[in-house]
Amino acid sequence: MRDHHLTCQEIVELVTDYLEYALDSETAAQFEEHINFCDGCAAYLGQMRAAIETVGSVEPEDVPQETLDGLLVAFREWKRT
């Protein structure tokens, strides 16, 4: 458990763990407490949920080869930088 309430920056850092149920119960409660009063972070959480829902419904064969190739190049370049 943290000895302070969570900041917006910490919410951004923790959002993936929250959505994957990887936070301990106290941190999850602090996360939700922040989301409850912070409209910006609530919107961010909603966008992340929507993105996961959308991407999660795309099968590899649904992605055009050109897009796959572009993504692979982008990831390889990203790793080098």
């Binding site: 000895d3 302070h4 409850n36």
Partner: peptide
């Protein structure tokens, strides 16, 4: 911004004064 934000602000200002 409504009651949730004001509730938080009052508590957060109290935290600045006396901690968690």
């Amino acid at each position: 911004d409504g009651p949730a934000m004001l509730g938080f602000m009052a508590a957060a200002i109290a935290e600045e004064r006396g901690g968690m």
